[in-house]
Amino acid sequence: MSITLDEVRHVARLARLELDEAELLAFQGELNSLLGRCQELQSIDVGELSPRTHAVALTNVLADDTPTQGLDQSLALRGAAVTRAGLFVVPTIIEE
């Protein structure tokens, strides 16, 4: 099984990565070699083993319901590329 250039293009779009053709080709080669190696996982008999998502099984971790000071507005905005009137400026999402 190998991944096609169109699949790489599709997945890059899903991952919101704008790539040029040369990059797409490079990634296709690298992905095929890495996924080729990962094929070995297919041949393992895992039976009914349940998936292990976490290293340490802590459950129902809840914080106490005590109010704490949140982030100051100016601090929250300090790293943003574009701000206006105390807000993040985003590119237009809904066109007229």
């Binding site: 790489v8 997945v11 890059a12 779009r13 991952a15 919101r16 990565l17 704008e18 790539l19 990059e23 490079a26 990634f27 690298e30 992905l31 890495l34 996924l35 985003v90 590119p91 237009t92 999402i93 066109e95």
Partner: peptide, 24 residues
């Protein structure tokens, strides 16, 4: 637009290895 800006920012500013792992 919005998607174009996000994709352009990520495509231009992430390096090769990071992009490869995100696609994978």
């Amino acid at each position: 637009g919005h998607v174009g800006t996000v994709a352009s920012t990520r495509g231009k500013l992430f390096g090769h290895e990071v992009k490869m792992r995100m696609i994978l």
